[in-house]
Computed example of a mutant assay.
Amino acid sequence: MAVKFTRSVTLLSLLLILMPSQLVADNQPWYLKVEPNRCIALRQGQTCYQTLVFKWSVPAEKEYCFFQVPDSRPLTCWYGRGVLSYKGNFELDRSTVYQIRIKDKDVSVLETKVKVAWVYKTDRKNYSEWRLF
């Protein structure tokens, strides 16, 4: 009885060593995450500059592309499944949506948003007006 258990554990260990990415991908849910998920500029209307790291899992084996909405050109494309990532420097002046789509289709399978925030909001007063008194 102990021999069968040892062989089963050894066989399972061997499978985990030989095919770890495939086994992990089968158990992974669909997700798309970004870190950080907020970009902060000093004043309202200014562009914020941030290095963003996107991580996602796509368990279905297809051709996918990663987009910054509303751009029609993808940031990257790939074929396959599993856990992947993308790192880049971004210049954002407003909150921006990022999507993973099936290649050659306008179908979004995953989506996330990077919010842009400001430390100081602009005043409604216009300081360029002339004053006589």
Rank of each mutant, 00 (worst) to 15 (best):
V3F: 04
V3H: 08
K4M: 03
F5I: 02
R7A: 02
T10P: 00
L12C: 04
L15Y: 08
L16P: 00
I17K: 12
L23S: 08
L23R: 12
V24F: 07
Y31I: 03
E35R: 11
N37I: 05
N37K: 12
A41Q: 10
L42V: 02
Q44Y: 01
G45D: 03
Q46I: 01
Q46C: 04
Q50V: 15
Q50G: 06
S57T: 07
S57L: 05
V58E: 04
V58A: 07
P59T: 10
P59A: 08
A60L: 13
A60F: 14
K62G: 00
F66N: 03
F67M: 07
Q68W: 05
Q68N: 07
R73S: 14
R73D: 13
P74Y: 14
L75K: 12
T76Y: 13
T76P: 01
C77Y: 13
W78S: 02
K87R: 15
K87I: 15
F90W: 02
L92E: 08
D93C: 06
D93Q: 14
S95I: 04
S95G: 10
T96A: 06
T96M: 06
Y98Q: 01
I100T: 03
I102E: 15
K103I: 00
K103S: 10
V107T: 15
V109T: 11
L110W: 07
K113M: 10
K115G: 00
A117F: 08
W118Q: 01
Y120N: 10
R124D: 11
K125Q: 08
N126G: 01
N126R: 05
W130P: 00
W130M: 12
W130I: 14
R131W: 01
L132I: 05
L132S: 09
F133Q: 13
